[in-house]
Nucleic acid binder design. Sequence first.
DNA 1: CCAAAAGTGTTCCGTCTACACCCATGG
DNA 2: CCATGGGTGTAGACGGAACACTTTTGG
Lengths: 225, 225
Amino acid sequence: MTGFYGEHSKVFVSVDCIVFGFDHNKLKLLIGRRQMDPGRGEWSLYGGFVREDESLEEAANRTLYTLTGLTEIYMRQVGAFGAIDRDPGERVITVAYCALIDVNDYDEKLREEHGVEWVSLDELPHLYSDHNEMVRKAIGQLRRRINTEPLSFNLLPELFTLTQLQHVYEAILGEEIDKRNFRKRIKTIDFIEKTEHIDKLTSKRGAALYRFNKEMYLNDSTFRL
Amino acid sequence: MTGFYGEHSKVFVSVDCIVFGFDHNKLKLLIGRRQMDPGRGEWSLYGGFVREDESLEEAANRTLYTLTGLTEIYMRQVGAFGAIDRDPGERVITVAYCALIDVNDYDEKLREEHGVEWVSLDELPHLYSDHNEMVRKAIGQLRRRINTEPLSFNLLPELFTLTQLQHVYEAILGEEIDKRNFRKRIKTIDFIEKTEHIDKLTSKRGAALYRFNKEMYLNDSTFRL
DNA sequence: CCAAAAGTGTTCCGTCTACACCCATGG
DNA sequence: CCATGGGTGTAGACGGAACACTTTTGG
């Protein structure tokens, strides 16, 4: 455990979390004012340094847990960012992770304590360092993956209406989808189950609530929206 | 430039290069026997540590240049790998890059000096540390990207026959493609230009040589094989 | 003259797209 | 009773998949 690579230099490694939520039919990003120098006060993703006793994934999960109090969050690596001057303080190489959560799972009080806010992607301000680039890359990944991976359910409550699901697709893809065609496609996917529950909040008539059946999905192994 | 993040710990960061070539209708990977401890003698990707004065991309390009003497190589980040014990020596976080080169561009003498070999993917041995995982991930990326990005030309000489191009697709996708359908698709892509040159090496009749027109591709901006 | 690779079209089928109206209910 | 969102089917266009024979020429 000692001295193999002694002649080489070490650098700080951090993780940055691109946390997406979905609210009022919009994709939202969790950002806050940076609370340390350099860049104090700038809008920024939430991140943290990787410790000696944890892997990158563990660091990302720890950071997400610190921020949200949630575990078992859907999370994907977006990539490593390593420009020399990307951090104005010292050399820091960072690995960005994209996470999807249900905004309802995030305690408002905890959110305020961390000084972070849900901001619409349309209204995204300039972010610290290269964070905007990370966000762009993450959205590109979401768009490419949404049809081959059950992403969308992570942004919704356990029970959701088809209209909600469609809005998630529209928010991620950035384009409108035909309602009839969408529902036709959904019907062919057997791990999206109709439940007996009815949502009466958003419409007078009431909408059927659906559920993502994870076991069924894992058995399927063929996914294709 | 000093002391902002002093309380945190630094780690070694390296880059590993997953170099693909194409020869005898097979995808090949450039690997060699590791020449340092720990793991000396094990099959391994070629890599190197990231220096203080270079970005991740620069480190990857430098490493590729050291290995092959080539510049302007097609290169994509595969991802960061950061398990605590991934390297048996010390803690090293690594960023893997996938590169595609034309095997003919790689000088044999240089190759031997570095003690690396082209190995068929079918016959890939167990590699050092988590290198097999990197290779798997890189191939997955190639498969997903081959239809949205002009990857294949990087594995071929400037002039190539349609049969060669088809074999590249087959090697990457791991399945046979119908010749007529393939050539029909290629005809719809205007940045794959037929030249006046004829290849007489592989067939008695001779095959038309084609060229990838990069300028035309960049103007197009819509790619879809 | 024959082996070996190059080259070439058509048909079928399934998938995607466009498109408009009725239903149920709370206020 | 009406405004609001929920729910449903069909026809045409398009793209992908299957499929076999002729051409050229070096040896």
